[in-house]
Write a protein that binds this DNA or RNA. Structure first.
Length: 412
DNA sequence: TCTGGGGTCCTAGGACCC
DNA sequence: TCTGGGGTCCTAGGACCC
């Protein structure tokens, strides 16, 4: 008996979780029953649709669309601001629930998980999927989709077949009838760039991709082509891993106003670096590559990175490199968004003092750890750098997608 | 249609070494 | 020097995901 994989996907996650939360605290409305979206703050230039209700979907409102555009499609649209604390909490609770069925739960994103079973027959798996789906609804008050198959790719494709509140299967013998009939852009990893290319070659359905010439796809699209060709056949040999190691950490922010001077940019970069370095230390990692990114007012994008001579988790070291990279990269155009990111990570251990590292940098590492402790205990802004004291700029900038963040967990 | 934020993986091309 | 070829490291940038 082979393995059974299930893919669990929360329907309109941010919106469902917000609705369930509102119900829990006794609010009268249910935002799922009216045209509504979860959307960012337009004044701060974060105005895009993060999730939509089923009634909103009927107006052709799509995730990622600007709120202005969404309102044009539906003038009475209800826009509800996001609350990430609720989502992180809800996501964690869901995972805990799923773990009751199998310890083999792999987190794919805040609202998606895979589960693996090795002792189930096909019919039993389908029954169990319904049980899990209905259990989530009863226990938490929102709906999920569950896809069932023999590998992750097919389970995920099955989960996408029909929403919301559904269980579906795509077992290998069902590929022809359930997968091949779908438009090629419905295949995982076929996005907005690949779709037009495939269409140009006369490939419009997943079945047509499966029937296409492997060598041609391979030559034209390289390894990406080989991957999607195999996906079209339902082949996915990825290993089921509980947790993949982190490869990079970063934070970026679209600014309330365009920034046109170096000093302000540096201060914002400091606040981003504070968050990135904090998360790096929280993960118990050091980095060796540091990179900065700039999006200008016309959405032109540029990035610059540098490999350091040593691994570090020190805010000061990272920040100094970020600033010099920024100075080399920036051409003076007004800046819309700034980003800081670190990669080439290794797990921190008791490190030898590197000849490239100065004494001040060692002292700073000790300082960083002390500051982290204060922030974790008393909040992000309990201790801030002097440059922010009389400034409108936020001392720490960027979100934390990670639910391991210790400052959270008091809501819901 | 004034368009977020967090990631991963892959490829190309130049520098450098033997 | 009218210079071959393989391998590695590094950076830039593209494509995709949720």
């Amino acid at each position: 008996m082979g393995q059974i994989i299930m893919h669990i996907d929360v329907n309109s996650a941010f919106l469902s979780w917000t609705a369930a939360y509102e119900k829990q605290i006794g609010m009268d409305r249910d935002i799922r029953t009216v045209p509504s979206v979860i959307g960012g703050n337009e004044e701060n230039r974060h105005g895009i649709v993060l999730a939509k209700s089923t009634p909103a979907k009927k107006f052709k409102i799509q995730t990622g669309m600007s709120l202005m555009e969404a309102r044009q499609l539906c003038p009475n649209l209800l826009v509800v601001p996001p609350d990430y604390k609720i989502y992180v909490r809800a996501s964690k609770k869901l995972r805990e629930y799923l773990m009751k069925f199998t310890p083999d739960v792999q987190i794919f994103s805040i609202d998606e998980c895979f589960m693996r079973f090795t002792d189930l027959k096909r019919e039993e798996a389908v029954e169990l999927a319904y049980e899990i789906k209905d259990g989530v609804k009863e226990m938490f008050g929102y709906t999920v989709n569950i896809g069932v198959s023999e590998n992750k790719l097919l389970a995920k494709q099955a989960g996408d077949l029909e929403k919301p509140d559904k269980c579906h299967t795509i077992f290998p013998d069902e590929i022809k009838e359930k997968l091949w009939v779908l438009p090629v852009e419905d295949l995982f990893m076929v996005g907005r760039r690949t779709k037009p290319k495939l269409n140009r070659w006369g490939i419009y359905t997943i079945g047509e991709l499966a029937a296409s010439d492997y060598n041609f796809i391979s030559t034209m699209l390289k390894s990406h082509g080989r991957m999607i060709y195999n996906y079209a056949w339902g082949r996915d040999d990825s290993v089921f891993k509980e947790k993949a190691p982190i490869k990079s950490v970063g934070n970026s922010s679209t600014l309330k106003f365009n920034v046109d001077n170096r000093e302000t940019a540096h201060v914002i970069l400091l606040s981003l670096t504070e968050m990135t370095a904090l998360r790096l230390r929280e993960a118990n990692m050091n980095c060796r590559v540091v990179s900065v990114s700039i999006k200008d007012k016309d959405f032109g994008y540029g990035a610059k990175q540098r490999k350091l001579m040593y691994f570090t988790d020190c805010t000061r070291d990272i920040y100094q490199n970020i600033c010099s990279l920024f100075d080399e990269l920036w051409d003076g155009r007004p800046i819309r968004q700034l980003g800081v990111s670190v990669s080439d990570l290794e797990i921190s251990h008791i490190r030898q003092i590197n000849i490239f590292q100065d004494e001040l940098s060692i002292k700073n590492e000790i300082l960083d750890k002390a500051v982290d402790k204060i922030r974790i205990k008393y909040g992000d802004e309990a201790i801030i750098r002097g440059v922010f004291a009389n400034s409108d700029l936020r001392p720490i900038l960027g979100g934390y997608p990670d639910d391991e963040y210790p400052g959270m967990g008091s809501i819901l």
